[in-house]
Design a protein around this nucleic acid. Structure first.
Length: 116
DNA sequence: CGTATGACGAGCC
DNA sequence: AGGCTCGCCATAC
């Protein structure tokens, strides 16, 4: 990780989102991060929306675990089209997703700031 | 160039 | 405690 200078073969739309993708790609398996969290780690405190846009524009073959990115409320993107599949992916990684598509941030929140 | 939208966040009522 | 509005960044039209 920590190699944002290298563009993945599936990321051609990377303009200013490369930072976001780099942070999201660093999220360890079994952990989740919040939009605002990724934005902060990327250097944009109030860029939560920008992160949403970045993930939203993410190609289907992107090498970015966008499913590990959830809202600060601990719930999986309620606007996402395949949120059900997203929850399933998280479960496969060991993350316990409630039937309400909610994740225990206190338990699965990626401590990038504390772990970095 | 200005306006509108968007998978959010935090503050305010 | 709950709900609503504004603000942030970036892209699209």
């Amino acid at each position: 990780m920590t190699e944002p200078g290298r563009e993945e073969p599936g990321l051609e739309r990377a303009s200013g989102w490369d930072c976001f993708y780099a942070v999201v790609a660093e999220i360890p398996r079994g952990k989740v991060a919040t939009y605002g969290g990724v934005a902060r780690l990327s250097g944009v405190y109030r860029g939560a929306r920008a992160v949403g846009w970045a993930l939203r524009a993410l190609p289907p073959g992107a090498a970015v675990p966008w499913w590990r990115v959830i809202s600060s409320q601990g719930c999986v993107s309620p606007r996402a089209a395949g949120m059900q599949a997203q929850a399933d992916l998280l479960r496969q990684e060991g993350v316990v997703v409630s039937d309400d598509l909610r994740v225990d941030l206190e338990r699965y929140l990626w401590d990038a700031e504390a772990g970095a």
